[in-house]
């Protein structure tokens, strides 16, 4: 879906997204790193998977859970930067379009 320009010589950073090893570059946002890796889905809803849409913090579609120290649930992947050893996964959102009767 996205490829890197050849003259990007930033340091490599390795993180884990749901047991998948992802190599990124220092300074990448988590959303950029996932898209560069070909991972389009960052969040699960009752209506299906969602992925980064605006990349500037206004759509809240790229929500992820970051595990471990300093992490959190439902963080915007386009607003946080990758670091070595980062562990993250899709955020799951309950929404009002759950099947009738679920509420």
């Amino acid at each position: 879906m996205f490829r890197r320009l050849p003259d990007d010589e930033r340091d490599r950073v390795v993180l884990t997204f749901e047991d998948e090893r992802i190599e990124a570059r220092r300074g990448d946002t988590l959303a950029a790193a996932l898209l560069a890796h070909g991972r389009m889905v960052t969040r699960e809803t009752a209506g299906g998977g969602r992925g980064p849409f605006c990349m500037m913090g206004v759509c809240f579609e790229c929500l992820v859970d970051v595990h471990g120290r300093g992490g959190g649930r439902g963080l915007q992947a386009c607003m946080i930067e990758v670091c070595d050893g980062m562990k993250a996964g899709r955020h799951r959102t309950q929404s009002s379009d759950e099947p009738e009767g679920a509420a």
């Binding site: 879906m1 996205f2 320009l5 990448d28 946002t29 605006c54 500037m56």
Partner: peptide, 14 residues
């Protein structure tokens, strides 16, 4: 604009 942000900030091309 998101694609352009990816280009400017992470040197990514669709």
């Amino acid at each position: 604009g998101a694609a352009q942000i990816l280009l400017k900030s992470s040197a990514l091309v669709p």
